[in-house]
Amino acid sequence: MPPAPPTVHERPRHDHADLEAHRRELTAHCYRMLGSAVDAEDAVQQTMVRAWRGLDRFDGRASLRTWLYRIATNVCLDELAGAKRRAMPVDVSAAPSEPVVSSLGAPLEESVWLTPAPSARVLPEGDPADVAVAREQVRLAFVAVLQHLPPRQRAVLLLREVLRWSAEEVADLLGTTTASVNSALQRARATIAAREPRPGSPLDALDPAHAELLRAYVAAFEAYDMEALAQLLHAEVVQSMPPYALWLRGPEDVVAWHVGPGGACRGSRLVPVEANGSPALAQYKPDPEQPGVRRFWALHVLRSRDGRVGEITNFLDTRTPAVFGLPEHLED
């Protein structure tokens, strides 16, 4: 016979600190589900509120961690109901754009785009091996591929292959059968396998070659030395600027953009940050109305390819400073 449920006096007693101890890993889970750092923070906050209100009903049949993941997954599935999948500009427009201002068009809604996440909010502390595994699970490329899955398939894949839940546990959470869970997992795996991996790799702070590439990129960009910048770019480099659908291909067009429509970036400063487990750069552009002041403009996320810069994504999201704990402006 199964054991009797714990009595009220036997139930584990938890407080707010016990819930907060799981915030980072829940944020990473919600980020993978939702593709937005802001939405992930909101989902985790909803999870914490629901958990706190229902803590007296938590009977200890499962661990507190498992119970929190159940709540968080359901919050995310509710958020994703009817929502469009988030993407990168190269997924929205099939062909590269001309490096002219008319290519920009109107900015698309924030809800269209995948957005970066601060490493400090989605990576665990502690054992380097655990951190290395977690880093791979929040890479932008991985999260971007996940967005091609329907929400429930996405949940199944993450619960089964990232969190290592059993099929029975996932079926119980989703209110379905183990056969349905296994079928959803097979379809999710097939969809991901059919997606061609993006060329190149994210920067690794521990790789000396990547560190030198990043240093050279900062030096060329801050000096606005387009000849030096072009030397760092892969022949098939791609640059994009969410929330615009525009994306450019090749060093010639990237440089043409910087000396043309993007010329106001001359004199910018780049501040190192960490995004999705990789080095990134916060760009502060000169304020034309306040000499000596530079205001946040974009977050540069780079990928390397054959020893050069293979991809530049400039996230032009005004909420980035708040999300990453950065100042809104810098002064000389």
Rank of each mutant, 00 (worst) to 15 (best):
residue 214 L to I: 07
residue 286 P to C: 08
residue 232 L to R: 04
residue 217 Y to N: 05
residue 245 A to Y: 04
residue 266 R to G: 12
residue 236 E to I: 04
residue 253 D to S: 12
residue 243 P to A: 06
residue 248 L to N: 08
residue 265 C to Q: 14
residue 231 Q to C: 13
residue 195 R to I: 15
residue 183 S to V: 05
residue 286 P to T: 10
residue 220 A to S: 09
residue 282 A to P: 07
residue 258 H to W: 09
residue 210 H to V: 07
residue 215 R to Y: 02
residue 219 A to P: 06
residue 264 A to R: 15
residue 279 P to M: 03
residue 218 V to M: 03
residue 230 A to F: 05
residue 232 L to V: 13
residue 225 D to S: 11
residue 266 R to K: 14
residue 226 M to C: 14
residue 258 H to P: 03
residue 224 Y to R: 11
residue 278 S to C: 10
residue 183 S to C: 04
residue 223 A to S: 14
residue 253 D to Q: 12
residue 284 Y to D: 09
residue 232 L to E: 07
residue 262 G to H: 04
residue 248 L to I: 07
residue 286 P to A: 10
residue 283 Q to H: 08
residue 195 R to Y: 02
residue 220 A to Y: 02
residue 194 A to K: 03
residue 225 D to T: 09
residue 284 Y to S: 11
residue 185 L to S: 15
residue 282 A to N: 07
residue 191 T to R: 15
residue 265 C to Y: 12
residue 258 H to M: 12
residue 199 P to A: 03
residue 248 L to A: 02
residue 218 V to G: 04
residue 216 A to W: 01
residue 280 A to Y: 13
residue 244 Y to M: 09
residue 221 F to P: 02
residue 247 W to A: 00
residue 254 V to S: 00
residue 241 M to T: 03
residue 279 P to S: 08
residue 207 D to Q: 05
residue 245 A to P: 01
residue 282 A to R: 07
residue 261 P to G: 10
residue 235 A to F: 02
residue 240 S to M: 12
residue 254 V to Y: 06
residue 269 R to H: 11
residue 239 Q to A: 13
residue 277 G to Y: 00
residue 204 D to Y: 00
residue 248 L to W: 05
residue 208 P to I: 01
residue 249 R to D: 00
residue 230 A to Q: 10
residue 195 R to K: 09
residue 281 L to E: 05
residue 275 A to S: 14
residue 217 Y to R: 09
residue 230 A to D: 08
residue 187 R to L: 10
residue 241 M to I: 02
residue 191 T to E: 15
residue 243 P to I: 07
residue 178 T to M: 01
residue 257 W to A: 05
residue 184 A to R: 08
residue 268 S to W: 03
residue 186 Q to Y: 10
residue 176 T to N: 02
residue 259 V to M: 11
residue 273 V to M: 07
residue 187 R to F: 08
residue 194 A to F: 04
residue 179 A to V: 06
residue 180 S to V: 07
residue 254 V to G: 03
residue 182 N to Y: 04
residue 235 A to G: 08
residue 194 A to I: 02
residue 248 L to T: 08
residue 206 L to Q: 12
residue 203 L to P: 01
residue 232 L to Y: 02
residue 215 R to T: 07
residue 253 D to V: 11
residue 190 A to K: 07
residue 280 A to E: 14
residue 226 M to T: 15
residue 236 E to Q: 14
